[in-house]
Write a protein that binds this DNA or RNA. Structure first.
Lengths: 110, 110
DNA sequence: AATTTATATACGACAATTCATATATTCTTT
DNA sequence: AAAGAATATATGAATTGTCGTATATAAATT
């Protein structure tokens, strides 16, 4: 009979490293971090982001898609305007800690 | 004369989104998250990780390299053994929040 | 119905990542 | 000095990510 102890593979599944890694993927592009930064104070539509970042509309939409697919942002449609907002306030905490790590690294090596 | 207000590009530099994105890159692979998980309770050398994960030595070394290059872990050499440990305790906080986000997502969609 | 506005997707070239296999380096022991 | 142990790097094939350009969709307005 099979042991009750979970296998290594099952442990990995419980820890869901794969899903965690996917969420992290959304944070691996400077522009996507910038979008999250801009969403700190509430939802924005694509035109808002276009005005504030001066990047092309497809460029923005493509990165928004990654953020949504990986679960970092969510959307709300009103008429023909799509509003993007953070999917989870904890995303902000992550951004804060990451910024903090980089900041202290720089000030200590300065 | 030039304005004192920082340009958008300078704001991005101040926010160092590029460096933040690079740090995040280290967290985008399940196996690297697993390594960080294994380093929670203190430093480990490559053979330790080999025993605990059953993956090939080059596979492990390659991922350790990414973690080190992106600044997530640091190394200490003693004789011909290299010990890896978390570069910053805040890395653990990030892992914890990410795991938490995934966990609550799953339990709420259940 | 035609046009405009807001957003999304398709495509393709290019760059970057992953991972196995093979080999190199570095230190220790014999 | 030779062999062994621990770790790192090189190479290359396959996969994935990036981003500009062009096009599609969907709702609103004329």
């Amino acid at each position: 009979m099979r042991s009750n102890l979970p296998t290594d593979l099952e442990i990995d599944k419980i820890n869901s490293f794969t899903e965690q890694a996917e969420l992290c993927q959304s944070l691996t592009h400077p522009f996507r971090l910038k979008i999250l930064h801009l969403l700190k104070n509430g939802e924005k539509n694509v035109s808002d982001l276009e005005n504030q970042t001066k990047r092309s509309q497809p460029f923005i939409s493509q990165h928004l898609r990654v953020l949504r697919e990986k679960g970092a942002v969510k959307t709300r449609r009103e008429k023909n305007v799509v509003y993007y907002s953070l999917a989870n306030p904890k995303i902000l905490e992550i951004c804060k800690i990451i910024a903090d790590i980089i900041k202290t690294k720089q000030s200590s090596s300065k």
